[in-house]
Design a protein around this nucleic acid. Structure first.
Lengths: 255, 255
DNA sequence: TGTACTAGCCTGTATATACAACTTGGCGAG
DNA sequence: CTCGCCAAGTTGTATATACAGGCTAGTACA
């Protein structure tokens, strides 16, 4: 009945992930090599190899034969968890991204925000309200709350040049995310921001993201229904020699 | 400049995945043990171990110390790729699922359907139109086309007792999926099926799924905006000792 | 000065070996 | 007949060793 001891390779992984999570090891920093782990951790090289190899598969580190092992960019982590960075999405389409910061302030968490972020009423949070444009057409209203002590420098950021999600991923790796998508009629303010006609629905994404085991940000993203689609392409891990399917632009098939 | 040879462990993985994909090894079947692979493939046990261990991580097989290695249920594969099985979702909430099959026929692929499934005009497809109910409330209209020669027994299925997605995953593992989510006003027929008021938007999921490198099914799923949300919870691989966040029921935060 | 080479470190893979823990089936004692 | 135990097969982990190949810095040589 006694629990199995935690394997050595897992201890190594935990140790390295911890040093990454707490900021001791930052992206592009060099991680101890297999031989250094052999020395310092008193394991065999194969055990160190397994730990580092699995961390590679999991996206924590990046290895180059002949050079070493390096902490991966947080943003390159699992794409399902990637904070939906609207700026990258737009520039990836070859279009111009711009935005307008409507609010950027410190507030006290109340009601739903406090509940969503697991905070007591009145704890400090930052509130950001941004409208994002694709080629000058409004495409997203980002209404985001950020736990203040997770991002102390938040008010110093210029969110016209770095999106909140890019800023947050630069602080610490994001480890869990919860997402709810729904179709909803916008209120008057959102409709105005998105320049939508009366009666047009919004695609709303509500997303909470965890780091170090606690929720750190809570975002409501409103998109104009007629102009926006949430697309995803999923490939099973370990699939080889798969012909990447050309992403056919699916037209509106509803008759 | 010469390409690195494909490693032995990868060859083992490819061989086993191929035997699973082609149907030679079916879910719950026993996969050769490490020692059997040592004999038949002329590798060391550690190499066989690595192949089977990685297939475990990737969700292809399931291992039990003392018993052996077994092909995993296709449906237990990566949750991002899981065909959105509305019946499981509803029963998972403790509610009753029922459905009404409005159409279940063989057709010739035309226009968008042929294009989406990479078929020539006129090739045989099955067309299924089903309304799904949660506790007698309509919650999804499933409008699905299936490549005929992928699922020859399709017309013999009773989709009141097994959903199309469950049927399809029972045929072959699904390997890739493409999904588009949007908010859209329903047409009159969909609005009637879902018993929606005029002006209420739909959450529409359009999904294509690949198997063996070709698209095999194409589904349009209409959900009533006010009653339905698409939820997802994502955890990074390799995350340990994370307290599973209680999924707070996020209320409608829009004021 | 500049080029070519090499030593040394690194990752990537492969093997042989060892021991622990789990599961099942069979066998023997009661 | 039943219970308990043990042997065999299986996975899970750990180690030592070996060789191939990539990368870099420094050195020897022209």
């Amino acid at each position: 009945m006694s629990a199995r001891p935690i394997p050595r390779y897992q201890q190594l992984k935990d140790m390295i992930v911890e040093r990454i999570s707490c900021g001791e090891l930052r992206p592009h920093d060099r991680v101890p090599s297999e031989n250094e782990l052999v020395q310092s951790m008193n394991v065999s090289r194969m055990t160190a190899n397994r730990a580092l190899r699995e961390l590679t598969d999991e996206g924590y580190v990046h290895r180059v034969a002949g050079r070493g092992t390096f902490v991966a960019d947080f943003r390159s982590r699992s794409h399902v968890l990637e904070v939906h960075n609207i700026a990258d999405e737009i520039t990836g389409r070859g279009h111009a991204h711009s935005c307008e910061v409507l609010r950027h302030s410190r507030q006290h968490a109340r009601g739903e925000v406090a509940k969503a972020l697991h905070l007591e009423q009145g704890v400090d949070v930052f509130h950001v309200l941004i409208v994002h444009f694709e080629n000058a057409v409004p495409i997203q209203v980002e209404d985001r709350h950020i736990v203040a002590d997770f991002a102390p420098g938040c008010l110093d950021q210029d969110f016209r040049t770095i999106t909140p999600s890019a800023y947050l991923t630069s602080i610490s790796p994001l480890q869990e995310a919860e997402q709810v998508v729904r179709a909803q009629d916008p209120n008057a303010a959102v409709r105005a921001y998105l320049q939508m006609a009366v009666g047009e629905p919004c695609l709303v994404v509500v997303r909470r993201t965890w780091s170090h085991g606690r929720p750190v940000t809570f975002a409501r993203l409103h998109h104009p229904g007629p102009r926006y689609e949430l697309t995803g392409h999923y490939t099973l891990p370990g699939t080889r020699k798969t012909t990447s399917p050309d992403v056919v632009q699916l037209e509106n098939l509803q008759r």
